[in-house]
């Protein structure tokens, strides 16, 4: 099981290059990272996966975008969460791997129907460390409530979770130990954190029955 940081945004979106972020990630205990945008593959150090983020207003728009060449080249496809009906719809799109920015949506935007559908289709929900690290006061309290709510749905329906630093700089990256401490703030256990950190590998290479090739 590879411990993966589910999203980092390297230079030019951030202030640190992909190679430097990969170097830091290795020092912080990660085996691989998902770079959002047009990242180049590394020859040494931790594995770098290519991620792409889709922002859309409707399911139709998402389906149109996932057929684009940039999305097809990507290893991991993220979709920004929206309202209830949008979230219910996108978790059933085959090409989508992860629903992200769940903390920016309204309460109950990701409900039990979307959770059940996500579990059936193997779509993950991303837990970003950015709001926990950078927000203060009521904003952070609201984020922790949302994550606790998502965690309770995950325990009930069993859809995968991913954990991302969402870092645009090496200063935003956190160690695996720090991630465990931050996730404990909304009730995630150590075993759940370990499983969530390893779920990117399972998303891109899902376990399938053995196929006989003749």
């Amino acid at each position: 099981m590879k411990i993966t940081d589910a999203s980092v945004c390297p230079y030019p979106a951030g202030d640190s290059t992909l190679a430097r972020m990969a170097l830091e990630a290795a020092e912080l205990g990660f085996d691989s990272i998902v770079a959002i945008g047009e990242g180049e593959r590394q020859t040494s150090g931790p594995e770098v996966l290519r991620g792409v983020v889709i922002s859309a207003a409707s399911q139709k728009d998402v389906i149109r975008q996932v057929r684009g060449p940039a999305v097809r080249r990507a290893d991991v496809v993220f979709v920004n969460a929206g309202d209830t009906s949008f979230n219910r719809a996108i978790v059933s799109v085959k090409e989508v791997h992860v629903v992200r920015n769940i903390h920016t949506t309204r309460r109950n935007a990701f409900d039990h129907v979307a959770a059940r559908s996500a579990a059936e289709h193997g779509v993950a929900v991303d837990v970003s460390m950015v709001p926990i690290i950078q927000y203060r006061g009521t904003r952070r309290q609201r984020v922790l409530q949302r994550y606790a709510d998502v965690l309770s749905l995950q325990r009930r329906y069993g859809f995968p979770l991913t954990i991302s630093s969402g870092a645009c700089s090496i200063l935003g990256q956190r160690s695996v130990r720090d991630v465990r401490g931050l996730c404990a703030l909304f009730g995630m256990t150590g075993a759940e954190v370990s499983e969530a950190l390893g779920s990117i590998g399972r998303l891109i290479e899902p376990e399938r029955p053995v196929r006989v090739v003749r």
């Binding site: 912080l28 926990i132 690290i133 990256q173 130990r177 720090d178 931050l182």
Partner: peptide, 22 residues
């Protein structure tokens, strides 16, 4: 452990962006 978790949420020292790594 609680203090180490809180140290992970430090984003600036003075006016400069910074991070503390335990």
């Amino acid at each position: 452990k609680d203090i180490a978790t809180a140290l992970a949420t430090v984003t600036a020292i003075g006016d400069e962006q910074a991070a503390l790594r335990t």
